[in-house]
């Protein structure tokens, strides 16, 4: 009986511990994508078509990732970055193939989200730089979606 109580106690403790860290273990890029899509939602009403495809991964604080993207002059683009991590600070910025900042000035960063707006001056390759600037987590999931009109 004593042994049974011990096993029960240990199992319960393990379960409780698991429940406590559950968000960190089970959070995923999919959660980050949900936030990115949430940021995109208001723009759909303005006529932006949001791509189903997305990019995602995890980054440590201060780390950056670049996504290369073909943009077409004549279209207008928004890029939305999301993370599921509370109190993380993320950013997204867009540069042309010469490394020159190519975004409009109305990009924004707030809470779980960041967004960048591009009206390409030329058709060609652009670099979308995503960054986790601060985060309470060791690794922070991110997801990037984009829309155009």
């Amino acid at each position: 009986m004593n042994l049974f109580a011990k096993v029960l106690f240990r199992t319960s403790s393990l379960l409780l511990a698991l429940m406590a860290v559950q968000p960190a273990i089970f959070a995923s890029v999919d959660d980050a994508q949900s936030f990115a899509l949430q940021a995109a939602e208001p723009y759909v009403k303005q006529g932006f078509q949001v791509r189903e495809d997305y990019w995602g991964g995890d980054l440590g604080s201060g780390e950056k990732k670049a996504v290369r993207q073909q943009l077409f002059k004549g279209n207008e683009y928004w890029f939305w970055l999301g993370t599921e991590v509370d109190r993380a600070k993320v950013s997204v910025h867009v540069y042309d193939s010469d490394g020159k900042l190519a975004e409009e000035s109305d990009g924004w960063e707030k809470g779980h989200f960041a967004a960048a707006h591009v009206i390409p001056k030329a058709t060609g390759s652009y670099f979308i730089i995503v960054s986790v600037e601060e985060s309470p987590e060791e690794r922070t999931h991110w997801a990037l979606v984009y829309g155009f009109r």
Partner: peptide
């Protein structure tokens, strides 16, 4: 950036 660039998006 060359080492951290994701594939170009089609």
């Amino acid at each position: 950036l060359s080492t951290t660039v994701e594939d170009v998006v089609v």
